[in-house]
Amino acid sequence: MKKKIAIIDYGMGNLKNVRNAFNFLGYDAEITENYKHIENATHLILPGVGGFKDAMLTLRQKGLIEPIKDAVASGKNFLGICLGMQLLFETSEEFGHSEGFGILKGKVIRFDDSVIPLIPHIGWNDIKMLKPVKEFNGIENNSFFYFLHSYYCAPEEDITAAVCDYYGKFSACVKKNNIFACQFHPEKSHTVGLALLKNFIND
């Protein structure tokens, strides 16, 4: 079956660079906010930079919450990037309390600024792989990826595929059935990031 990659547009962050990465790998990818395109895609990507609450609000206004939930439930290959990973969880501490998709059990927590001198966590950090998921095929353990975030996910299930250490370990990647999500930006993580995106597309 021909691969149809859809990047979900909800007005948060640099979607163009996600598409550029797929184009560079030789795949077409469509940036879309049309639920029909989401329905028809074989591979769905939820990217994003910015606020959790604003993101959920925009997704709701655009009528994309249910189509995304349905697509994930139907078993479509799903990739969440950065904020797109966080949104999959139940709640975020941002502005007290914000509701996410609730597809994954757990919450999104802010880095503790009483302990950590620099927030956001910004730059290249290495990840320790815990599970041999297909997205890591051919990528060495402890490879560096590009991170840019002030919040991180705390899953309540055993779905963490890799951890990263920034004044304490946090979940850098999660994998559950058809869902893979990463806190870093693969589209900005040079050759290892491109390899990860390619692995996501290929079975």
């Binding site: 660079n17 550029n20 840019l148 993580s189």
Partner: peptide
């Protein structure tokens, strides 16, 4: 440039 490099 953004089409050709994959670092920030």
């Amino acid at each position: 440039i953004s089409e050709n490099i994959f670092i920030p």
